[in-house]
Amino acid sequence: MIVNGQEQTVAAGMMLLDYLKQAGYNPERIAVEKNGSIVPKNDYDKTVLQQEDTLEVVQFVGGG
């Protein structure tokens, strides 16, 4: 799997939400695109990751 341009290995059948938590992301401060499409927040715990997926995880920080 490619995450933010870097090659990563995921366990077969891993859920997106579990991957995000394991990688240390706060689900309330991110946006996730999988294979070019936004993943709705309510689908994080229903989305199964595949080795051939490309993920873009945008992490937001405060200030404006």
Partner: peptide
């Protein structure tokens, strides 16, 4: 998107994209 709080930024962007 020109909000201050990270959670508000994420909320707006997720909702707009969805």
């Amino acid at each position: 998107e020109a909000f201050d709080a990270a959670e508000q930024k994420a909320m707006l962007i997720n909702t707009l994209l969805e």
